[in-house]
């Protein structure tokens, strides 16, 4: 399968944080949810892909090309939506276009106008009058108006109210039917990915916990609920994380089938959500 993005043994060290030899790849035409708690290394990874910060080691290939030596060619085909607005607040969407469009050889004016209309963004109002959701929509309009083949989205829904979040996700789902486009969507709100992600990469404390197809992950991980008497050394070994209360326990397993075979009818074993997976993996044992 053709890979749009390949990250291999990527490393970046700070005094208080290390992105530790992470690897994952995003096939062409798919949407990857990049999940992890705040401070896990999601933004650092995206900044490294965009060459906004320098890597200490490893390799990043975008469209099969090294992201530093072919930076301009690559960026020509990347659309980006960051967690906050970086466009000039004193300008209108029309003026933003006059600044941004000439940088891209494949800029499409009619597509941009179409997005502004369908996102109900006023063309002649200054950005400073826009709400956070409107600014995110504008970033999305710019990102999708120059024939980008990879769209990087760094926490685009953070800080948005549920209505705006749903709206942004619906827009994304409708727009990203194009099979040439790949999307890396970073978020700590895992429910955002329920309906749109094909792949999930989970990062925690600078390490990749897993990177696989979403359905495979959700088919394998399970949430086990039962009485505390079931918890012995053998059962505990099956769990990634456990939450124990006086009423019983709730635990996450990586192998739902194995847990079912082991516990049979003595416990309830159900599919885990991405939120369950993230919570139990990050927290481990919760008492």
């Amino acid at each position: 399968m053709e890979q749009t993005l390949e990250v291999v043994n990527l490393q970046k060290k700070y005094t208080d944080f290390t992105l530790d030899n992470i690897s994952f790849s995003l096939p062409r035409g798919f949407i990857m949810g990049f999940i992890g708690p705040n401070g896990a290394g999601k933004s650092t990874t995206i900044k490294l892909i965009m060459n906004l910060i320098r890597k200490d080691a490893g390799k990043i290939n975008v469209f099969g090309l090294d992201n530093t030596s072919h930076e301009q060619n690559i960026k020509e085909k990347i659309g980006f939506v960051y967690d906050e607005n970086h466009y000039y607040e004193e300008l209108t969407p029309i003026e933003i276009r006059s600044i941004i469009a000439p940088f891209y050889s494949r800029w499409d004016d009619s597509a941009y106008d179409g997005f502004l209309r369908s996102f109900a963004l006023p063309q002649k109002k200054k950005l400073k009058t826009f709400s956070r959701g409107m600014k995110t929509k504008l970033s999305l309009a710019v990102a999708l108006s120059h024939g980008a083949e990879l769209v990087l989205m760094d926490e685009p829904t953070s800080g948005l109210d549920p209505v705006f979040r749903r709206e942004i996700l619906d827009i994304l789902r409708d727009l990203l039917q194009d099979e040439r486009k790949s999307v890396l969507f970073s978020t700590h709100i895992t429910s955002d990915l329920d309906r749109i992600a094909d792949y999930i990469t989970f990062i925690n404390r600078g390490n990749i916990i897993f990177s696989a197809e979403r359905d495979v992950i959700l088919d394998n991980y399970g949430l086990v609920k039962g009485n505390n008497e079931l918890l012995d050394e053998r059962t505990r070994e099956q769990f990634v994380g456990i939450r124990e209360t006086s009423l019983g326990f709730e635990a996450l397993t990586k192998n739902i089938q194995k847990a079912r075979n082991l516990l049979k009818e003595r416990a309830v074993v159900e599919r885990a959500t991405l939120e369950d997976i993230m919570l139990y993996t990050v927290k481990g044992e919760i008492k």
Partner: peptide, 10 residues
């Protein structure tokens, strides 16, 4: 914070 924007452009 437009340095991030400028450095994300080609």
């Amino acid at each position: 914070k437009s340095e991030i924007l400028l450095n994300s452009l080609p």
